[in-house]
């Protein structure tokens, strides 16, 4: 006499089989910490500066017209208590004093640099002369303001001390 399928067998076939998630879980547990360690949370940037070249002065053969075409040299001095902007051929210096002790007025600096760019569109270089005591943060902010106002070339000037022997 043939026997029918057992009740338990017929029940197991009718039930939906759950997928085995343990290998996936193992994979996730390895991948997620690995990705967390290599994930970039801080985006670093680079600011390029150029060094002054020797013999950058004008030659003797230049005619007056050629000299007039040359863009004016703009120099930004970072001093312990103020910013000073000097434009070649203009005697009046732009002075931007600190708002309070240790707080530079970057907003006014930004406005002045933007104004100088409008009046000297051909000029793409600003010479920066930092005081030795000025912080690196002030230097970088000033460079950033110049670059954001379409002065892509920043020439880092280094002040040299010269000693002369008295006769």
């Amino acid at each position: 006499m043939a026997m029918g399928p057992s009740k338990s067998r017929s029940r197991s076939q009718s039930e939906l089989r759950e997928p085995n998630l343990i290998p996936i879980m193992n994979l996730f547990i390895v991948i997620i910490p690995m990705l967390m360690t290599i994930m970039v949370t801080v985006h670093l940037a680079m600011i390029e500066i150029t060094l002054p070249t020797e013999g950058a002065g004008g030659g003797g053969d230049d005619t007056q017209e050629q000299l007039e075409d040359l863009p004016k040299v703009i120099t930004l001095a970072l001093l312990p208590d103020r910013f000073e902007i000097m434009v070649e051929g203009i005697e009046d210096m732009i002075t931007i004093p600190q708002l309070s002790a240790g707080t530079y007025d970057y907003f006014t600096l930004d406005k002045n640099i933007a104004r100088l760019k409008n009046s000297n569109e051909k000029q793409g270089t600003i010479d920066i002369l930092p005081d030795p005591s000025v912080k690196f943060d002030t230097l970088l902010r000033s460079i950033d303001i110049c670059k954001s106002n379409n002065f892509p070339n920043i020439k880092y000037l280094t002040s040299a001390t010269k000693f002369y022997k008295a006769k």
Binding site: P130, P132, S133, K135, S159
Partner: peptide, 14 residues
Amino acid sequence: ADKEVPCKYITEFI
């Protein structure tokens, strides 16, 4: 460089 470093050291390195 740290933002608090004075520029005299940066100038020297340059």
